[in-house]
Design a protein around this nucleic acid. Structure first.
Lengths: 194, 194
DNA sequence: GTCTATACGACGATAGAC
DNA sequence: GTCTATCGTCGTATAGAC
């Protein structure tokens, strides 16, 4: 267990997250990260291979955290209805409590700065989200159809609300819209006409 | 009417669109555009103020084209059902016939390279799309709710299918999914339970 | 592990001939 | 309008002291 006050890599990652989301990856220089974080350029390069390495470490960590949370929902809830609802609720909450994390995770073009990285929708969290939908079809909760179509229609509305919120187009707390969004999303693909 | 074969600005814009979508704006240098287009660096700067000016001209043109098409749908069709369906169908078609245009329009972070530019969802095409939804609520076709929620849920699934297709996650022609996507999308917000 | 100073290359933009 | 050649800057990455 290290002393958190001097955890240099974490300090760098925190600052990088802020700058990458506020200014964009390419508008942020390593000197910017050094200046804002208070860590020298040399130290940054000591802990990370290069600038891309900083972004990659950040991206990997955020995806892992998210995957852990989604896996927990799979164990915690039985039905796809509950699992998917928990996912959307959690993402709405995260958007409000930590918009930078959400923005970096699902609103940046990673392939432009992370070589050989797959698009977000190929990442583990998105795979887990599709697994839940597949489960819903197997259990007869969700109408049988192409998995990608069902997933897009179930999560698409919520994801657009999130990006709109991050863009500042939606002004109120996302949680106020959760119930309405969920009703529409579930109605789109559920078997019973409610 | 100019000779199209020597329309330098258009040649530059065509090449820029290709490179911006394939490599990203920041991974594309003006020299790259010059080399690929066959137009010299000097000529590019003669026709455009700077690199950002090229991107801005491109973005503006594409949005104007799209706005024109969507306005036509508003005049052509009476119901929101028909209007919104036409929009999604047209976007699916465009994604197949001209993926670069679609990618640059709705899958780039313009604010990172276009100063003072509003996010895509504030652009005229997206406003028109929301107008159609508002019309649907006024006419009693769509359940009364927050306009942003209704729009996100109606178009969200289709837009995710488009980005998934552009990412290469969806392998088949989008048109094959149109009917299923539309059924789900409309079900999400329509008044009659079908 | 942390720092400062610096090397090196790339890119945006311009000058000026044709 | 189009071109080539060049300038100046900025940013990545490293060297090397502490």
């Amino acid at each position: 267990m290290q002393n958190k006050k001097t955890d240099t890599p974490q300090t760098v990652l925190n600052t990088a997250l802020t700058l990458f989301t506020k200014e964009g990856y390419f508008n942020t220089s390593v000197h910017d990260i050094a200046r804002v974080s208070g860590v020298s350029v040399g130290s940054i390069y000591h802990h990370f291979k290069d600038k891309e390495g900083v972004a990659r470490a950040l991206y990997t960590l955020l995806l892992e955290d998210m995957s852990r949370e989604l896996s927990a929902f799979q164990e915690q809830y039985e039905s796809a209805y509950e699992q998917c609802h928990a996912v959307i609720k959690r993402m709405f909450m995260l958007t409000e409590s930590d918009p930078e994390r959400m923005e970096f995770m699902l609103y940046s073009k990673h392939r432009e700065f992370l070589q050989n990285e797959l698009p977000v929708c190929s990442s583990t969290p998105f795979k887990l989200m599709r697994e839940m939908v597949q489960r819903g079809m197997d259990r007869g909760e969700i109408v049988e159809m192409d998995l990608m179509v069902a997933s897009s229609c179930l999560y698409g509305g919520a994801l657009r609300m999130i990006t709109s919120r991050l863009d500042g187009i939606v002004e109120k707390d996302l949680m106020e819209y959760l119930d309405d969004v969920w009703i529409c999303s579930w109605r789109a693909i559920s078997v019973d006409d409610k």
